[in-house]
Simulated scan of single mutants.
Amino acid sequence: MPDALRVAAMDCGTNSLRLLVTDVRGEEKRDVVREMRVVRLGQGVDETGRFHPDALDRTLAVTREFGELATVLGAQRIRFCATSAARDAENADELNDGVESILGVRPEVLTGEDEARASFLGATRSTSGSALVVDIGGGSTELVVGADGDVQWSHSFDVGSVRLTERFLPSDPVSIDEVTALEAYLDGLLVPQVSSLEPVSTLVGVAGTITTVAAHALELPSYDSSAIHGARISVDDMRTACLSLLRMSVADRRALPFMHPGRADVIGAGAMILDAVLDAVPLATDTVTVSEHDILDGIAWGAAGL
């Protein structure tokens, strides 16, 4: 892409660290590489309020790997954004200082509102019309309503697959009492915020929890981004897939051909969040559109100044 700006975007979440190197020119974007590593930065943060030393070591090691790759690929700008776990950790400066020493740029710790906006723009920049974007992460979940690139309403909930697994679902497989307690918690959190929304006619699901549930609903023989991106899956099929994943043991989830091994132990809680959202949000559609474009793409657009 002639005269394009090559940027490297890094999204440091509670469970994973992801890299996107992409060429941006005007409203065009052409991806060069996408990478993801499960680093579990949020290990124990919900309980202790601090990053565990091992989690920091894992995250900084992958940051170094991604920084070297970005340099080899000729990235002209690097943007590193951290989300839920970095908002909560008392020792977040240990992460920030470490990243800055490796990349030469200081991480941006996104607020819940910033995270919601980046997710919405990443998922919908090339589309028109109104939509609700659902982004379930390891530490938080963002719901965003907007149209044609403009955010009209958003809310960030402190519920994510890692946080809720540690808090509510310690057993393997999960017990009925654990599931009941988490269902009640999610209903009490979500319903007051979303029940007054106008019925949603387009619902877009992004990020690893939702794409993994989609892979299960589609019964994919392996994780296939091309099959997942843009897939329109019935709400009923997504909810059935959520329940199926929740009931499995971690070993059975790990044996699924599309399952990333670093997601197997927390996907049950993530699936419960998605199921609760689909139950609580007023829907004027019976399908979920799944997108592989998400907050990482929003970070990249921001790195390019757009």
Rank of each mutant, 00 (worst) to 15 (best):
L73P: 11
F80L: 04
G270I: 10
L164D: 12
A300L: 14
V213P: 00
R87E: 10
G302Q: 15
W153L: 02
V151P: 06
I176G: 02
M248Y: 04
K29T: 12
A86Q: 01
V200N: 08
A55R: 04
T289H: 06
E94S: 13
P257W: 00
A8C: 14
A75C: 02
T111W: 06
M10N: 01
S161A: 15
R106D: 10
V109H: 00
W301T: 06
L218Q: 13
A184R: 15
E68M: 13
S154Q: 14
P192R: 09
Y185G: 01
L190S: 06
R58I: 07
D114C: 00
V174Y: 00
V213K: 01
A271M: 08
R40P: 03
D23C: 05
V206L: 02
A231K: 07
G146V: 09
G230V: 05
R117K: 14
M10C: 11
G270V: 12
V179A: 14
D88Y: 01
I210N: 05
T59N: 10
L95W: 01
S195L: 10
T209E: 13
C81F: 03
A207N: 11
M238S: 03
R50I: 00
L245Q: 02
A241L: 04
L60R: 02
V72I: 15
S195E: 15
A9K: 11
R79Y: 04
D3K: 11
F168S: 00
G137I: 12
D88W: 03
L121C: 13
K29G: 01
L73E: 13
G305L: 09
V191W: 07
S175E: 13
L278W: 05
A276P: 08
R247E: 13
E28S: 12
E47G: 03
V33R: 04
V206W: 02
G137A: 08
T287V: 15
V45T: 04
V134E: 00
V194G: 11
M272C: 05
R239E: 12
R64V: 04
R40S: 10
G44T: 03
L283G: 09
L164Y: 11
H155F: 14
V206H: 01
V200P: 05
L73R: 13
D252V: 08
A9W: 05
A86R: 06
I176L: 12
A75Y: 01
V162N: 05
G188A: 09
E219K: 15
D187K: 12
V133D: 10
V204M: 12
V24K: 02
A86I: 08
L164K: 06
A82K: 00
L169N: 06
V99E: 04
V133T: 12
V281Y: 07
A82C: 05
D46E: 12
A89T: 06
V99K: 05
S101C: 07
L103G: 00
E166T: 04
D237L: 06
D135M: 02
T48N: 03
S291W: 11
D3I: 01
P170A: 05
G13S: 07
E47L: 08
N15W: 06
D294H: 09
A9T: 08
R6D: 09
D54Q: 14
A70Q: 10
L103E: 00
T124P: 06
H260C: 00
L296V: 13
D275Y: 14
